[in-house]
Simulated scan of single mutants.
Amino acid sequence: MNGFVKGEVDPAFRAVREVFESSFADGRNAGAALAVFVDGQAVVDLWGGVADARANRPWERDTPVVTFSCTKALTATAALAVAHDRGIGWDEPVTTWWPEYGAAGKESTTLADLLAHRAGLPAFDRPVSVEEAADPAAMAALLAAQEPIWSPGAEHGYHALTFGWLVGEFVRRHTESTVGDYVRRHFGAELWIGAPPHIAQRSARTAFPPAREMAWADPGPIDADTVTRMAAAYRDPGSLAMRASTNPVGSYNKPEVLAGGWPASGLVATARALARFYSDLVSGTLLPTAVLRDAVREQVRGPDSVLLLESAFGLGYMLPCENFILPGPARSSAFGHPGAGGALGLGDLDNRVAIAFTPNLRRDWLSGDRRAHDLVAATYSAL
Protein backbone atom coordinates (compact mmCIF):
# COMPACT_ATOMS: atom_id res chain seq x y z
CA MET A 1 0.00 0.00 0.00
CA ASN A 2 2.92 2.39 0.62
CA GLY A 3 3.69 2.32 -3.10
CA PHE A 4 0.13 3.34 -3.93
CA VAL A 5 0.37 6.66 -2.05
CA LYS A 6 3.14 9.05 -3.02
CA GLY A 7 4.55 12.17 -1.48
CA GLU A 8 6.21 13.25 1.72
CA VAL A 9 5.30 13.78 5.37
CA ASP A 10 7.17 15.20 8.32
CA PRO A 11 7.96 12.27 10.68
CA ALA A 12 5.72 13.79 13.34
CA PHE A 13 2.76 13.41 10.96
CA ARG A 14 3.38 9.79 9.99
CA ALA A 15 -0.03 8.81 11.42
CA VAL A 16 -1.72 11.17 8.96
CA ARG A 17 -0.16 9.26 6.09
CA GLU A 18 -1.39 5.99 7.61
CA VAL A 19 -4.96 7.30 7.75
CA PHE A 20 -4.71 8.52 4.15
CA GLU A 21 -3.35 5.17 2.97
CA SER A 22 -6.06 3.23 4.79
CA SER A 23 -8.76 5.16 2.93
CA PHE A 24 -7.51 3.63 -0.32
CA ALA A 25 -7.10 0.17 1.18
CA ASP A 26 -10.74 0.02 2.28
CA GLY A 27 -12.13 1.56 -0.94
CA ARG A 28 -13.25 4.89 0.49
CA ASN A 29 -10.99 6.76 -1.94
CA ALA A 30 -10.45 6.24 -5.67
CA GLY A 31 -8.05 9.14 -6.17
CA ALA A 32 -7.21 11.96 -3.80
CA ALA A 33 -4.61 14.36 -2.48
CA LEU A 34 -3.93 15.79 0.96
CA ALA A 35 -1.79 18.73 2.04
CA VAL A 36 -1.12 20.19 5.50
CA PHE A 37 0.84 23.30 6.47
CA VAL A 38 1.79 24.22 10.03
CA ASP A 39 3.31 27.62 10.76
CA GLY A 40 3.70 28.15 7.04
CA GLN A 41 5.68 24.94 6.47
CA ALA A 42 4.43 21.97 4.46
CA VAL A 43 4.29 18.93 6.75
CA VAL A 44 2.07 16.68 4.61
CA ASP A 45 2.00 16.48 0.82
CA LEU A 46 0.41 13.24 -0.38
CA TRP A 47 -1.49 11.96 -3.39
CA GLY A 48 -2.53 8.63 -4.79
CA GLY A 49 -5.01 6.51 -6.65
CA VAL A 50 -6.65 7.01 -10.01
CA ALA A 51 -7.44 10.41 -11.50
CA ASP A 52 -9.62 9.00 -14.28
CA ALA A 53 -10.88 5.44 -13.95
CA ARG A 54 -12.10 5.34 -17.56
CA ALA A 55 -8.61 5.98 -18.91
CA ASN A 56 -6.79 4.33 -15.98
CA ARG A 57 -4.93 7.61 -15.53
CA PRO A 58 -3.04 7.79 -12.24
CA TRP A 59 -3.22 10.71 -9.83
CA GLU A 60 0.03 12.65 -10.23
CA ARG A 61 1.70 15.24 -8.04
CA ASP A 62 0.19 18.10 -10.06
CA THR A 63 -3.28 16.60 -10.69
CA PRO A 64 -5.94 19.22 -9.93
CA VAL A 65 -9.61 18.48 -9.29
CA VAL A 66 -12.78 20.50 -8.93
CA THR A 67 -13.37 21.24 -5.25
CA PHE A 68 -17.01 22.37 -5.41
CA SER A 69 -18.01 24.63 -2.50
CA CYS A 70 -14.47 24.92 -1.19
CA THR A 71 -14.55 27.72 -3.79
CA LYS A 72 -16.71 29.91 -1.55
CA ALA A 73 -13.89 30.58 0.90
CA LEU A 74 -11.73 32.03 -1.88
CA THR A 75 -14.55 34.16 -3.26
CA ALA A 76 -15.31 35.42 0.25
CA THR A 77 -11.64 36.20 0.87
CA ALA A 78 -11.48 38.16 -2.37
CA ALA A 79 -14.47 40.25 -1.30
CA LEU A 80 -13.04 40.80 2.17
CA ALA A 81 -9.68 41.86 0.75
CA VAL A 82 -11.29 44.30 -1.67
CA ALA A 83 -13.54 45.72 1.05
CA HIS A 84 -10.56 46.22 3.35
CA ASP A 85 -8.45 47.83 0.63
CA ARG A 86 -11.28 50.21 -0.34
CA GLY A 87 -12.40 50.98 3.21
CA ILE A 88 -15.88 49.55 2.66
CA GLY A 89 -17.76 48.25 5.69
CA TRP A 90 -19.55 44.88 5.73
CA ASP A 91 -22.78 46.57 6.85
CA GLU A 92 -23.05 49.14 4.10
CA PRO A 93 -26.09 48.58 1.85
CA VAL A 94 -25.36 46.66 -1.33
CA THR A 95 -27.13 49.41 -3.25
CA THR A 96 -24.26 51.82 -2.55
CA TRP A 97 -22.16 49.92 -5.08
CA TRP A 98 -24.88 47.96 -6.95
CA PRO A 99 -27.90 50.27 -7.31
CA GLU A 100 -29.92 47.81 -9.40
CA TYR A 101 -29.90 45.33 -6.52
CA GLY A 102 -32.45 47.37 -4.58
CA ALA A 103 -35.33 46.01 -6.69
CA ALA A 104 -38.08 43.77 -5.29
CA GLY A 105 -37.59 44.65 -1.62
CA LYS A 106 -33.84 44.00 -1.36
CA GLU A 107 -32.72 47.56 -0.65
CA SER A 108 -31.71 46.82 2.96
CA THR A 109 -29.34 43.96 2.02
CA THR A 110 -25.73 44.36 3.16
CA LEU A 111 -22.47 42.77 2.07
CA ALA A 112 -22.53 40.87 5.37
CA ASP A 113 -25.93 39.46 4.39
CA LEU A 114 -24.50 38.19 1.11
CA LEU A 115 -21.49 36.65 2.84
CA ALA A 116 -23.51 35.03 5.65
CA HIS A 117 -26.14 33.44 3.38
CA ARG A 118 -28.87 35.79 4.62
CA ALA A 119 -29.69 37.42 1.27
CA GLY A 120 -32.84 35.38 0.59
CA LEU A 121 -31.77 34.45 -2.96
CA PRO A 122 -30.62 30.84 -2.59
CA ALA A 123 -31.99 29.79 -5.98
CA PHE A 124 -32.68 31.28 -9.38
CA ASP A 125 -36.35 31.65 -10.27
CA ARG A 126 -35.85 30.31 -13.81
CA PRO A 127 -33.55 27.76 -15.46
CA VAL A 128 -30.04 29.04 -16.16
CA SER A 129 -27.85 27.60 -18.91
CA VAL A 130 -24.15 26.79 -18.73
CA GLU A 131 -23.55 29.52 -21.32
CA GLU A 132 -25.32 32.13 -19.18
CA ALA A 133 -23.45 30.97 -16.08
CA ALA A 134 -20.14 31.90 -17.73
CA ASP A 135 -21.25 35.56 -17.88
CA PRO A 136 -21.03 37.06 -14.36
CA ALA A 137 -22.71 40.31 -15.42
CA ALA A 138 -25.72 38.41 -16.76
CA MET A 139 -25.96 36.29 -13.61
CA ALA A 140 -25.77 39.39 -11.43
CA ALA A 141 -28.53 41.06 -13.44
CA LEU A 142 -30.80 38.05 -12.93
CA LEU A 143 -30.28 38.14 -9.18
CA ALA A 144 -30.66 41.92 -8.95
CA ALA A 145 -34.13 41.73 -10.51
CA GLN A 146 -35.30 38.73 -8.49
CA GLU A 147 -37.61 38.87 -5.47
CA PRO A 148 -36.10 37.31 -2.32
CA ILE A 149 -37.63 34.19 -0.81
CA TRP A 150 -37.29 35.69 2.67
CA SER A 151 -36.69 39.24 3.86
CA PRO A 152 -32.93 39.89 3.63
CA GLY A 153 -31.29 39.37 6.99
CA ALA A 154 -34.31 37.65 8.54
CA GLU A 155 -33.16 34.05 7.97
CA HIS A 156 -30.11 32.21 6.73
CA GLY A 157 -30.06 29.46 4.15
CA TYR A 158 -27.26 28.01 2.06
CA HIS A 159 -26.83 29.87 -1.24
CA ALA A 160 -25.13 26.89 -2.88
CA LEU A 161 -24.56 28.49 -6.29
CA THR A 162 -25.95 32.02 -6.14
CA PHE A 163 -23.45 32.94 -3.38
CA GLY A 164 -20.69 33.13 -5.97
CA TRP A 165 -22.40 35.60 -8.28
CA LEU A 166 -23.74 37.71 -5.41
CA VAL A 167 -20.43 38.07 -3.56
CA GLY A 168 -18.49 37.99 -6.81
CA GLU A 169 -20.34 41.05 -8.05
CA PHE A 170 -18.76 43.06 -5.25
CA VAL A 171 -15.32 42.02 -6.50
CA ARG A 172 -16.22 42.60 -10.13
CA ARG A 173 -17.62 46.09 -9.60
CA HIS A 174 -14.68 47.27 -7.53
CA THR A 175 -11.82 45.67 -9.48
CA GLU A 176 -13.27 45.30 -12.99
CA SER A 177 -12.11 41.68 -12.97
CA THR A 178 -13.75 38.35 -12.34
CA VAL A 179 -13.32 36.51 -9.07
CA GLY A 180 -11.22 33.95 -10.93
CA ASP A 181 -8.82 36.57 -12.27
CA TYR A 182 -8.55 38.26 -8.87
CA VAL A 183 -7.87 34.99 -7.07
CA ARG A 184 -5.11 33.92 -9.44
CA ARG A 185 -3.42 37.33 -9.30
CA HIS A 186 -3.58 37.76 -5.55
CA PHE A 187 -3.92 34.32 -3.94
CA GLY A 188 -2.14 31.81 -6.17
CA ALA A 189 -1.55 31.10 -9.86
CA GLU A 190 -2.64 27.46 -9.42
CA LEU A 191 -6.10 28.31 -8.09
CA TRP A 192 -8.38 28.21 -11.13
CA ILE A 193 -11.92 29.54 -10.89
CA GLY A 194 -12.33 29.23 -14.62
CA ALA A 195 -9.98 26.46 -15.76
CA PRO A 196 -8.35 26.78 -19.19
CA PRO A 197 -8.49 23.75 -21.52
CA HIS A 198 -5.06 22.37 -20.60
CA ILE A 199 -5.96 22.42 -16.89
CA ALA A 200 -9.38 20.85 -17.45
CA GLN A 201 -7.72 18.15 -19.54
CA ARG A 202 -5.44 16.98 -16.76
CA SER A 203 -7.97 17.43 -13.96
CA ALA A 204 -9.20 14.38 -12.12
CA ARG A 205 -12.56 13.05 -13.21
CA THR A 206 -15.18 13.02 -10.47
CA ALA A 207 -17.31 9.93 -9.93
CA PHE A 208 -19.85 8.49 -7.52
CA PRO A 209 -19.61 5.20 -5.63
CA PRO A 210 -22.27 2.49 -6.12
CA ALA A 211 -25.78 3.54 -5.13
CA ARG A 212 -25.81 1.19 -2.15
CA GLU A 213 -22.91 3.17 -0.65
CA MET A 214 -24.75 6.49 -1.06
CA ALA A 215 -27.73 5.64 1.17
CA TRP A 216 -28.11 7.94 4.16
CA ALA A 217 -27.68 5.17 6.67
CA ASP A 218 -25.53 6.89 9.30
CA PRO A 219 -27.01 10.18 10.57
CA GLY A 220 -24.24 10.56 13.14
CA PRO A 221 -24.94 13.54 15.39
CA ILE A 222 -28.01 14.67 13.41
CA ASP A 223 -31.37 13.53 14.73
CA ALA A 224 -33.26 10.99 12.66
CA ASP A 225 -36.20 13.32 11.93
CA THR A 226 -33.89 15.88 10.34
CA VAL A 227 -32.23 13.21 8.21
CA THR A 228 -35.66 12.02 7.06
CA ARG A 229 -36.66 15.55 6.05
CA MET A 230 -33.35 16.07 4.26
CA ALA A 231 -33.68 12.79 2.38
CA ALA A 232 -37.17 13.77 1.25
CA ALA A 233 -35.95 17.20 0.12
CA TYR A 234 -33.16 15.69 -1.98
CA ARG A 235 -35.66 13.37 -3.67
CA ASP A 236 -37.93 16.29 -4.57
CA PRO A 237 -36.69 18.29 -7.58
CA GLY A 238 -38.96 21.17 -6.53
CA SER A 239 -37.52 21.50 -3.04
CA LEU A 240 -35.48 24.58 -2.19
CA ALA A 241 -32.44 22.38 -1.47
CA MET A 242 -32.54 20.93 -4.99
CA ARG A 243 -33.38 24.21 -6.70
CA ALA A 244 -30.44 25.86 -4.94
CA SER A 245 -27.92 23.18 -5.86
CA THR A 246 -28.92 22.06 -9.36
CA ASN A 247 -29.52 25.26 -11.35
CA PRO A 248 -27.54 25.93 -13.47
CA VAL A 249 -27.28 22.29 -14.46
CA GLY A 250 -23.95 21.06 -15.73
CA SER A 251 -21.52 18.21 -15.23
CA TYR A 252 -18.32 19.26 -13.50
CA ASN A 253 -16.51 16.78 -15.74
CA LYS A 254 -17.34 18.98 -18.74
CA PRO A 255 -14.60 21.44 -19.82
CA GLU A 256 -17.19 24.14 -20.52
CA VAL A 257 -18.39 24.02 -16.90
CA LEU A 258 -14.87 24.10 -15.49
CA ALA A 259 -14.06 27.00 -17.83
CA GLY A 260 -17.18 28.89 -16.74
CA GLY A 261 -15.64 30.25 -13.56
CA TRP A 262 -18.59 29.52 -11.28
CA PRO A 263 -17.48 31.46 -8.20
CA ALA A 264 -19.32 29.34 -5.64
CA SER A 265 -18.41 25.88 -6.88
CA GLY A 266 -15.93 25.90 -9.75
CA LEU A 267 -12.48 26.03 -8.14
CA VAL A 268 -10.05 23.58 -9.76
CA ALA A 269 -6.90 23.12 -7.71
CA THR A 270 -4.46 20.70 -6.17
CA ALA A 271 -4.67 20.04 -2.44
CA ARG A 272 -1.26 21.69 -2.15
CA ALA A 273 -2.47 24.95 -3.71
CA LEU A 274 -5.64 25.03 -1.64
CA ALA A 275 -3.78 24.33 1.61
CA ARG A 276 -1.20 26.99 0.74
CA PHE A 277 -4.07 29.47 0.30
CA TYR A 278 -5.24 28.74 3.85
CA SER A 279 -1.68 28.88 5.12
CA ASP A 280 -1.24 32.33 3.59
CA LEU A 281 -4.61 33.33 5.00
CA VAL A 282 -3.84 32.37 8.61
CA SER A 283 -0.36 33.90 8.38
CA GLY A 284 -1.81 37.33 7.60
CA THR A 285 -0.48 37.44 4.05
CA LEU A 286 -3.87 37.65 2.31
CA LEU A 287 -5.83 39.56 4.96
CA PRO A 288 -4.74 41.43 8.07
CA THR A 289 -5.18 39.09 11.04
CA ALA A 290 -7.65 41.46 12.71
CA VAL A 291 -9.82 41.44 9.58
CA LEU A 292 -9.74 37.65 9.39
CA ARG A 293 -10.63 37.28 13.07
CA ASP A 294 -13.62 39.53 12.48
CA ALA A 295 -14.58 37.50 9.41
CA VAL A 296 -14.54 34.16 11.26
CA ARG A 297 -16.69 35.52 14.09
CA GLU A 298 -20.06 33.78 14.03
CA GLN A 299 -22.75 35.67 12.13
CA VAL A 300 -25.44 32.99 12.00
CA ARG A 301 -26.05 29.58 13.50
CA GLY A 302 -29.13 27.38 13.57
CA PRO A 303 -31.54 25.53 11.29
CA ASP A 304 -30.67 26.30 7.69
CA SER A 305 -33.69 27.29 5.58
CA VAL A 306 -32.25 25.44 2.57
CA LEU A 307 -30.25 22.54 3.98
CA LEU A 308 -32.70 21.91 6.88
CA LEU A 309 -29.92 20.99 9.31
CA GLU A 310 -27.79 23.29 11.47
CA SER A 311 -25.34 25.49 9.61
CA ALA A 312 -23.07 28.26 10.88
CA PHE A 313 -21.23 31.02 9.03
CA GLY A 314 -18.93 33.93 9.60
CA LEU A 315 -18.42 36.32 6.70
CA GLY A 316 -18.30 33.71 3.96
CA TYR A 317 -16.46 31.04 5.94
CA MET A 318 -18.30 28.03 7.32
CA LEU A 319 -17.82 27.30 11.00
CA PRO A 320 -18.02 23.91 12.76
CA CYS A 321 -21.64 22.75 12.78
CA GLU A 322 -23.82 19.83 11.67
CA ASN A 323 -22.94 20.64 8.06
CA PHE A 324 -19.21 20.96 8.83
CA ILE A 325 -18.40 18.30 11.39
CA LEU A 326 -14.89 18.50 12.79
CA PRO A 327 -13.11 16.58 15.55
CA GLY A 328 -13.10 18.12 19.03
CA PRO A 329 -9.66 19.78 18.96
CA ALA A 330 -10.56 21.73 15.80
CA ARG A 331 -14.01 22.94 16.80
CA SER A 332 -13.03 25.98 18.82
CA SER A 333 -10.87 27.77 16.26
CA ALA A 334 -11.07 26.14 12.80
CA PHE A 335 -12.94 27.63 9.87
CA GLY A 336 -13.08 27.05 6.14
CA HIS A 337 -15.44 25.34 3.74
CA PRO A 338 -16.28 21.79 2.72
CA GLY A 339 -17.13 20.86 -0.85
CA ALA A 340 -19.70 18.44 -2.23
CA GLY A 341 -18.73 14.82 -1.90
CA GLY A 342 -15.94 15.16 0.65
CA ALA A 343 -13.52 17.94 -0.35
CA LEU A 344 -12.28 20.21 2.43
CA GLY A 345 -10.34 23.42 2.92
CA LEU A 346 -9.60 24.43 6.51
CA GLY A 347 -7.66 27.08 8.38
CA ASP A 348 -6.99 27.62 12.08
CA LEU A 349 -5.62 30.91 13.36
CA ASP A 350 -4.88 29.70 16.88
CA ASN A 351 -3.04 26.54 15.85
CA ARG A 352 -1.52 28.01 12.64
CA VAL A 353 -2.79 25.03 10.66
CA ALA A 354 -3.99 24.77 7.05
CA ILE A 355 -5.45 21.56 5.60
CA ALA A 356 -6.85 20.62 2.19
CA PHE A 357 -8.27 17.29 1.09
CA THR A 358 -9.31 16.87 -2.56
CA PRO A 359 -10.90 13.55 -3.57
CA ASN A 360 -12.55 12.65 -6.85
CA LEU A 361 -14.92 9.98 -5.45
CA ARG A 362 -17.95 11.96 -4.36
CA ARG A 363 -19.21 10.50 -1.15
CA ASP A 364 -21.39 12.10 1.49
CA TRP A 365 -20.62 11.97 5.18
CA LEU A 366 -24.27 11.10 5.95
CA SER A 367 -23.60 7.73 4.33
CA GLY A 368 -20.73 6.99 6.67
CA ASP A 369 -17.92 8.82 4.87
CA ARG A 370 -15.44 10.21 7.35
CA ARG A 371 -12.41 10.72 5.14
CA ALA A 372 -11.76 14.40 5.78
CA HIS A 373 -12.86 14.15 9.42
CA ASP A 374 -10.37 11.36 10.11
CA LEU A 375 -7.54 13.20 8.37
CA VAL A 376 -8.22 16.38 10.33
CA ALA A 377 -8.35 14.37 13.57
CA ALA A 378 -5.00 12.72 12.80
CA THR A 379 -3.47 16.10 11.95
CA TYR A 380 -4.53 17.71 15.21
CA SER A 381 -3.33 14.69 17.17
CA ALA A 382 0.13 15.20 15.64
CA LEU A 383 0.45 18.87 16.51
Rank of each mutant, 00 (worst) to 15 (best):
G7V: 09
T285S: 00
P327I: 09
D236Q: 01
R202E: 11
E176M: 11
L274I: 13
E190F: 01
L114R: 01
A145G: 15
F163P: 07
V44D: 11
P197N: 10
T96R: 05
A137I: 10
H84F: 06
G164I: 07
A42P: 14
D225Y: 03
K254G: 04
A103T: 01
V257N: 03
P148V: 14
L161A: 12
I222H: 04
R54D: 14
P152N: 02
N56S: 13
R362D: 08
V130F: 01
W47P: 02
D62Y: 10
W192D: 10
A141C: 03
D225N: 08
A154T: 15
Q299M: 13
F313H: 06
A76G: 11
C70Q: 13
H373R: 10
G49F: 06
P338E: 09
R362S: 12
A200L: 03
G302Q: 06
G250H: 00
G102C: 00
V19M: 12
P148Q: 12
F4T: 15
R331C: 13
E298I: 09
P359Y: 07
V66T: 13
R235F: 06
F124R: 00
T71N: 08
P152I: 03
G341I: 11
W150G: 04
C70G: 08
R202G: 08
L281Q: 10
L308D: 08
Y182D: 06
A79V: 00
V257K: 08
D52N: 14
I88M: 07
L166Y: 02
R173D: 00
V282P: 09
E147I: 09
L114A: 01
P320H: 14
T71Y: 11
P255L: 05
A233F: 13
R370G: 05
V249Y: 09
G31D: 12
D225F: 04
